[in-house]
């Protein structure tokens, strides 16, 4: 290739890689399904929301692809979980045409809980945090408020709309929690002893005054070895656990072993990380989680 042609192509590539904003509309990247719902409800029709990873990819095992990295060059801002559930995003942004793209840390104002399960067992000592703040109502509302405020700073013309939308969305989410707790009004204080297959639901259970006694999985999606499973079953018996919460999208034979050996009842939560990205996916699947939790308390803890 001649030097002149190379220069022309290089300049053309730089022009293509520049951020594109359609008539002042923000283009906002998100990593996980709940954040798509949060941001879509905040911005309404005033901005575009784009997932960094395609629907169908498991965010726990996602490895960045060139076509996904390329899309970051078209974004104005990226909203991150930022505390361990979308670590891939940092590498994607660094490798993109916009390594300096504005980042909003959605969890900057959320009081974080220490990680349970594998991360804690590996010596976290309380410094490793549980990144599943999006799997709770209070955690979601706090993040919605933080993201709305930061988007308002980037897009002052729509700041008032973002703030109003965030408060309306927060009211809907709170109503879901109130409806769920209303179904427990006739029962005493919940005193369930709970274990979870994946260490993702501490924030949600904490909202109901419940504490997770044990986490079964050595790592998300990784089945325990027979020796680990035997120790887990002994631990569940020793802790007198009444309920184990598994996950809708991780059916595993070993969960049946736990049920058979311990007689403990199992219920399945949604991790809200699968399927299509949509504005209502968080409300839909969190509604399922709240119904599941209420059912577990009514059947076992009342």
């Amino acid at each position: 290739m001649k030097r002149r042609e190379f220069l022309v192509l290089s300049v053309a590539a730089l022009i293509v890689a520049r951020p594109v904003r359609a008539a002042g509309r923000l283009r906002i990247g998100v990593t996980l399904h709940p954040y798509y719902s949060f941001v879509s409800n905040i911005v309404g029709d005033h901005a575009d929301v784009e997932p960094l990873i395609p629907a169908g990819f498991n965010p726990h095992a996602y490895e960045p692809r060139p076509e996904d990295i390329r899309r970051i060059g078209q974004l104005d801002v990226v909203v991150l979980n930022g505390i361990g559930h979308d670590d891939f995003a940092g590498r994607m942004i660094a490798a993109s045409a916009r390594p300096d793209v504005t980042v909003i840390e959605a969890n900057a104002e959320v009081p974080l809980l220490a990680a349970l399960g594998s991360m804690a067992r590996n010596g976290g000592g309380g410094t490793v945090v549980n990144p599943h703040t999006f799997l709770s109502i209070t955690g979601a509302v706090q993040q919605v408020y933080t993201v709305a405020r930061e988007l308002g700073r980037l897009d002052p013309a729509h700041a008032a709309a973002y703030s109003a939308n965030a408060r309306a969305y927060a009211r809907r989410l709170r109503q879901m929690r109130a409806d769920a707790l209303g179904k427990l009004s006739g029962v005493g204080a919940a005193r369930l002893r709970v274990a979870t297959i994946h260490g993702a639901y501490d924030y949600l259970l904490r909202e109901f005054g419940l504490e997770v006694a044990a986490v079964v999985e050595p790592s998300h999606g990784i089945e325990p070895s027979p020796a680990q499973l035997a120790r887990t079953i002994d631990a569940l018996r020793g802790l007198d656990v009444q309920v184990v919460f598994s996950e809708l999208h991780f059916p595993s034979a070993y969960i049946d072993t736990i049920r058979r050996e311990t007689g403990i009842r199992l219920y399945a939560f949604s991790h809200i990380s699968y399927g299509d990205f949509s504005a209502d996916v968080f409300e839909r699947e969190m509604g399922h989680n709240l119904d599941t939790l209420v059912q577990a308390i009514l059947e076992n803890g009342a």
Partner: peptide, 24 residues
């Protein structure tokens, strides 16, 4: 993260969010 009971952790998170609604 380390100095509160589980119940206090839940209440603290709720109070921080409530403070923003009250202030608004």
């Amino acid at each position: 993260r380390s100095g509160l009971t589980p119940a206090e952790q839940g209440l603290y998170a709720d109070l921080l969010v409530a403070a923003q609604d009250i202030a608004a």
